[in-house]
């Protein structure tokens, strides 16, 4: 009996050391994995590996990309490209947030609004935003506006659908309680329905941000004169192959950065709601 606690303490310490070791070990494994990938890439491009169906003959290696990045960072174009893309994304995205949440609240809350607005939206929804590009170029006199429109289209449907879903899933008992406590329709919208739907809306905002970037890059490749998507495509046509990969990396980083920012804002707006991924 006297020994039992000692024993359990010992095993506890053991398992603690073990878990520390394993956490440490896992990071090492991860770092090695990345290093091996980079090395393989470097080797493949250096030795111009040709596997028949895929060839690395024209693929720049990691070091080429690094030098390209340094050169790019020194040129004045860097700021212009990134700023242009960010402006387009955030302009289209901001409009999508307002329209998506606004329409979503209306559709989720009122049957009349749902009957009125849902059919045309349901007809437009299956059309991928990218398919709008030619028409958008025709519709808008400036290519800037057409690209903002494309990012808007990309973001608006995920935001709209998640808002509707969130509003429809607000616990009706909460609404009943709010009515019993003297809440008017207006107050219930602000105090109950909006916060009740907030976690779902935040999900929609995150998904919308992703699709928004996707659409923008595509649009820039097709019809841009500036922007990071245009830069990537231009590098291909100008045969600056290292810049292609640099463009890809930048696109990935900008997308990741925006969605990280969004998750943080979402978490700050819904402090009572902590999704698993943020807790880790």
């Amino acid at each position: 009996m006297v020994r039992a606690p000692l024993c359990s303490q010992a095993t506890e310490a053991d398992s603690l050391a073990q878990s520390f070791e394993s956490a440490y070990g896992r990071w090492i494994v991860r770092a090695i994995s990345v290093a091996v990938c980079l090395l393989a890439w470097q080797a493949a491009s250096r030795f111009r590996v040709d596997l028949g169906i895929i060839t690395f003959a024209n693929v720049p290696g990691p070091t080429d990309v690094l030098f390209a990045a340094i050169a790019f960072a020194k040129s004045p174009k860097v700021f212009a490209h990134i700023a242009t893309s960010l402006t387009r994304v955030f302009a289209g995205y901001a409009i999508a947030v307002v329209v998506g949440i606004g329409l979503g609240l209306a559709i989720g809350k009122s049957r009349r609004a749902a009957d009125l607005l849902s059919p045309p939206l349901e007809l437009l929804r299956p059309i991928p935003a990218v398919a709008w590009i030619p028409l958008a170029v025709l519709m808008f006199p400036s290519s800037e506006l057409s690209m903002i429109f494309i990012t808007f289209i990309g973001a608006v449907f995920p935001i709209l659908l998640n808002t509707v879903h969130g509003v429809e899933n607000v616990d009706p008992r909460l609404i009943a309680s709010a009515r019993s406590l003297g809440g008017t329709r207006q107050a219930i919208l602000w105090e109950v329905i909006l916060p009740g739907a907030a976690p779902s809306i935040v999900t929609g905002l995150a998904v919308g941000m992703g699709t928004s970037w996707f659409c923008l890059i595509t649009a820039e490749m097709i019809s841009g004169q500036f922007g990071i998507g245009y830069f990537t495509w231009e590098s291909y046509t100008l045969q600056n192959y290292a810049d292609i990969v640099l463009g890809m990396v930048l696109i990935g980083m900008l997308g990741m950065g925006s969605s990280y920012l969004l998750r943080r804002i979402g978490a700050a707006l819904t402090p009572w709601h902590t999704p698993e991924e943020l807790r880790r």
Binding site: R173, L174, S177, S180, V192, P195, A198
Partner: peptide, 13 residues
């Protein structure tokens, strides 16, 4: 006329 249910209906936020 206030009402209290078996499972609370407090606003989680």
């Amino acid at each position: 006329r206030g009402i209290v249910f078996q499972h609370h209906t407090l606003f989680p936020w």
